[in-house]
Each structure stands twice: as structure tokens, then as C-alpha cells.
């Protein structure tokens, strides 16, 4: 009886339940257009002399494009919280590793980086 009571064949009471979402070709073509425009902007922005801001702008555009790919092409926007947190945790860990390594690197020869 109790087993029957908690049985949830369609998985709807599972907190990880996420409605299965199919992204349409039209939505994919918008994403595709956005990525192409991003590429053009990257090349044009590199030709403008922004000094130290050139790499920052280039990385900002690349990060934006990467987020678009992850959210739509890789369907993370429509996934359960488990997948979203997993992806976020991975990038967060990567940033922690880079930051801590840079802190070590920069503090060893202060001012000479």
C-alpha cells in the first residue's frame, strides 16, 4: 500500500522534474544569427584600438556567445535544477582555480607581473 502511495511513475512529485522541452528550428536559427553577429562584432572590435580594453571586450563577447550556446544549443535553460547547478558549479570551480593560481603567481613578485 505505502509503496503504491509513493510510487510516482510519471515523476511529477520529483523536485528534479523538468518539463521536456523541444527547442524549435526557428529558435535555433535566431541563436545561429546571434552567434554570427557576435563573430562579426569580435573581428570589428579587434580593429578598433581600445588599448587594454581590447582583450576585455573580446572575452566579454566570447563569454556572451558561450552562454548563448550553453543555454540554447545545449538546452541548459530547459533542464532541471540539478543540471543547471552542475554546470554552474563547474564554471565556478574553474574560476576559483584560475583566481587562486593568479593570486599565488602575482604575490610572489609583487609589482613585477
Amino acid at each position: 500500500m505505502s509503496e503504491h502511495h509513493y510510487h510516482d511513475a510519471s515523476n511529477v512529485v520529483n523536485p528534479e522534474h523538468a518539463e521536456h522541452h523541444i527547442v524549435t528550428p526557428l529558435q535555433y536559427s535566431y541563436v545561429y544569427g546571434g552567434l554570427i553577429i557576435g563573430t562579426i562584432i569580435t573581428v570589428l572590435a579587434a580593429d578598433i584600438n581600445l588599448g587594454v580594453f581590447n582583450p576585455i571586450v573580446a572575452l566579454a563577447i566570447a563569454c556572451t556567445k558561450a552562454v548563448i550556446v550553453i543555454l540554447f544549443f545545449m538546452h541548459v535553460k530547459y533542464q532541471s535544477n540539478l543540471i543547471k547547478v552542475t554546470v554552474g558549479a563547474g564554471f565556478f570551480t574553474f574560476i576559483v582555480l584560475v583566481t587562486m593560481s593568479l593570486v599565488d603567481y602575482m604575490s610572489r613578485a609583487w609589482g613585477l607581473w
Binding site: V23, Y28, F72, F73
Partner: peptide
């Protein structure tokens, strides 16, 4: 990007 679009 086109290759990725067709994969999607």
C-alpha cells in the same frame, strides 16, 4: 558555428 547549428 554552422556545424553546431546543424547539430542542434
Amino acid at each position: 558555428i554552422s556545424s553546431g547549428f546543424f547539430m542542434a
